[in-house]
Design a protein around this nucleic acid. Structure first.
Lengths: 340, 340
DNA sequence: AACGTTACCGGAAACGTTGCCGGAAAAGCA
DNA sequence: TGCTTTTCCGGCAACGTTTCCGGTAACGTT
C-alpha cells in the first residue's frame, strides 16, 4: 500500500488525547468518558480508520487466522469442505489462509513452514497422498500448533480428527451391489497408508464375506488417488475374460474415470457393469447416467473441523483432542440396477 | 500457539552476538563474517527457528499476502482460477488469503474491510452479482490498495482487468447453433450490469443479426446468475407452443439446470433441443450428453491476474493498469447437432 | 477541612523484526 | 610507523498496537 493508512496516533493527535485513550475507545474498554469515546469513534469513522491487525497480532501474539492445507483444489470435495470451514471461521472472527500441497510431501513441508512462519493460530489439514513421514507435523504440534485432521487421517498422529464412517459407507455400497444382483465386484482402491483407503477396502471385504462371496485379490486395484490410474485399471478389468459386473470406486474422480472408460468400451451402465462411487461432490448426479454414490456430509465436515480447532485454540492446554465420525448415506441413482 | 517459538533474540544470546548480526545472517545481507553467519544459520536450523513474519510485516509494511475475493466457491470455476493464482503467487513468495462474498454486497464490503485490516499487499477481485455501488472499492483504491479485477468486470472502475473475449465466445457459440440447423435460439442471460453479461448477450444478438435471424426478446431470459432461475425459465420456454430448438446459457451452472429440466421433460438433447454453455469447468464434459461449450483458459486467468497484481505491487506508482482479454474456443461435444 | 473514592487519562514498555549509523579492530597503503 | 580503508559488529529507533501502572482532578464523606 503506497499511501499510509491512518493510525491511532493520527486520531490521538487530532483530538489531543493519548494513544492509550484512543485504543480504549476503539475496543470499547471501560475507564473512558462516553463523550471522548464518541469523539474518537466519530473521527475514526470519518478517517475510515482500519485497525492494523498486523500490529495487534504482534502485540497479542494471536493472528486470528486459521490455516487450511489440502492436497488439491480442482475436484469439488475440498473446496466444499473449505466452504464450511470459512463459514464457521468467519462467524467467529477468524480469517482463513488456504494452501495446497499438490499431493506432494515436499510442498506440504514447505507450506507448513510458511503457515508456522505466518503464525496461524491453528491448522486444518488433509495430508497429501504421498506423505508417509510425519515428523514435520509432529514437530509443529510439539511447538504447540493446534491441528485438526480431516479426510486424510493417520492413526499415529495425535490431534482432533474429523472423518466419515468409511467402513460403513463402503459396506453399504457393496451390499447394495450384491442385492441388485452383481456377482463379481471389483474395487478401485485408495492408498493403504491412509485410514480412508483401508477402511473403505475393509468395508468392501467384509460386505463380500458377510454374503459368502469369495475374495478375489485381483479385483482390488491400487489406484491410490493417482490421476489416470483408475482408467488404466478399469481398462484392464474390462479386457479380462472374467470381467467384473460391478465397480466400487474409492472416490469420485476414480469413478468418473471408470465411467468414461466403460462408455468407451461401448458397455452399458448399469446393465453390463454397475458403478458406484464414494461421493466427493454433488455433481456425481450430473454425469450420465447419474451415479449411485455414498454421500458424505461435506459441508458439515468443514464446519465441524473449524469448530473443533477454534475450541482448541481458545481452550489451550485444557482441550483434549476429539475424533468425530460422521455418517454417510447411500444415494441410489441410475448407475446401479434396480432392486428386484 | 501456546509454547513460544525461538526468536532472533534466543539465537543472539546463545551465540553471544547482537540481534542485528543474527538478522543480517538470516536474510543473508553483506557485512557479516562467513563464520559467524554459518554458526547462526546452524543454530537457527537446530532450534528449528521460523522467522516471525508478523513482525517483519509490521516493520517493512508489507505482508506478502495477496487477498482474493470471489462470489462463491462451490462451482468449479473460481476454485480453478484460484489454483492459478496460488501457483503464480507461491512461486513469487506470496501467500494467498481467500474469501467469498456469497454474491452479497454487504459481505463483500465487510470482507474488503477485513482484507484492508489484514494489510494485504493487493487484491484480486471478482465482484458479487448484486454489487451495483462501487464506493467501497474506489475507497480502497484511493488508499493505495492495488486491485486486479477478473471475470466480473465493471467499466467504471480503474485497475487492471483480466477477462475473456465474451463477445467472441458467445458469437461463436450461437453461430455454431445456427450452422447446425437451429432456428429458434434462446439465451439464458447474465446480469446486465456486468460486462460479462452484456458482452455475451451482444455476441448472441450480433450472431443472430449477422445471419438475418429475427431477434425475439421473449427468448432472452434474465437468469442473472441466480440459482434456480435457469431452471424456471427453461421450464417456461419448454412449455411455450413455439418452444425454442436451442439454448445458449451464460454459464455452466445455468446450462446444467437447463439440462436437467430438459431431461425431465423427456426431450432429447440435441435432437429436440441443442444446448451450449459458457464453460466454467472441465466437468461439462461429464454430463449427459457431454456438453458443447465455450471454453475459457481458466487457469491462465488466475496466473495472469496474480502476475499483474504482483507487478503492480512492486512497481507501485510507475505501474499503469492493463486490461487483458484472453481468447475462448468452442469445444464441440454432443449437446449440439453435427455439422451437416 | 482533611481524607478516601471514583472516573478518567497519559506514559512507557513490550511484541519480533529491520536498517541506519557509528565504532572498533583488522587490513591495506604510503 | 602512521595513515586510510575495509570488515565486521552493536546500539537504537521504528513499525502500530495493547496493557500495566500511576497520576490528577473532581466528587463525596465525616
Amino acid at each position: 500500500m503506497s499511501s499510509k493508512q491512518p493510525t491511532i496516533w493520527d486520531i490521538a493527535i487530532k483530538l489531543n488525547v493519548s494513544i492509550s485513550t484512543v485504543s480504549r475507545a476503539l475496543r470499547n474498554a471501560p475507564d473512558i468518558n462516553p463523550d471522548t469515546k464518541k469523539a474518537i469513534l466519530d473521527l475514526a469513522h470519518q478517517l475510515d480508520y482500519q485497525p492494523n491487525t498486523i500490529a495487534t497480532s504482534l502485540r497479542k501474539n494471536k493472528t486470528n487466522i486459521i490455516g487450511v492445507m489440502v492436497p488439491e483444489f480442482v475436484h469439488a470435495f475440498f473446496p466444499n469442505v473449505i466452504l464450511g470451514i470459512q463459514e464457521a471461521a468467519n462467524e467467529a472472527g477468524y480469517k482463513v489462509m488456504t494452501m495446497q500441497s499438490g499431493e506432494s510431501l515436499d510442498i506440504e513441508k514447505h507450506n507448513l513452514q510458511a503457515m508456522i512462519s505466518s503464525r496461524v493460530d491453528g491448522l486444518i489439514l488433509a495430508i497429501s497422498r504421498e506423505t508417509d513421514d510425519y515428523e514435520h507435523i509432529k514437530s509443529a504440534q510439539r511447538k504447540g500448533l493446534p491441528i485438526v485432521f480431516f479426510n486424510r487421517i493417520v492413526d499415529e498422529l495425535p490431534g482432533s480428527k474429523v472423518m466419515v464412517d468409511d467402513y460403513q459407507g463402503a459396506y453399504m455400497a457393496v451390499e447394495h451391489l450384491i442385492q441388485t444382483g452383481c456377482r463379481r465386484i471389483a474395487h478401485l482402491a485408495g492408498p493403504q497408508n491412509l485410514t480412508i483407503g483401508r477402511n473403505r477396502l475393509n468395508g468392501y471385504l467384509d460386505a463380500l464375506k458377510a454374503h459368502q462371496f469369495p475374495i478375489d485379490e485381483s479385483l482390488i486395484m491400487p489406484c491410490n488417488f493417482l490421476e489416470g490410474k483408475a482408467r488404466i485399471y478399469t481398462q484392464q478389468l474390462l479386457d479380462r475374460p472374467d470381467r467384473p459386473d460391478a465397480l466400487f470406486a474409492v472416490n469420485d474422480p476414480a469413478a468418473i474415470e471408470a465411467l468414461i472408460c466403460i462408455q468407451e468400451h461401448q458397455l452399458s451402465i448399469p446393465d453390463d457393469i454397475s458403478l458406484i462411487g464414494f461421493s466427493n461432490a454433488p455433481h456425481s448426479a450430473f454425469v450420465t447416467p447419474p451415479m449411485t454414490a455414498v454421500a458424505q456430509p461435506i459441508h458439515a465436515m468443514g464446519r465441524l473441523a473449524a469448530e473443533l480447532l477454534m475450541r482448541q485454540i481458545s481452550e489451550g492446554q485444557r482441550f483434549s483432542p476429539e475424533t468425530h465420525v460422521l455418517q454417510t448415506n447411500l444415494i441410489v441413482r441410475q448407475s446401479t440396477r434396480r432392486l428386484s
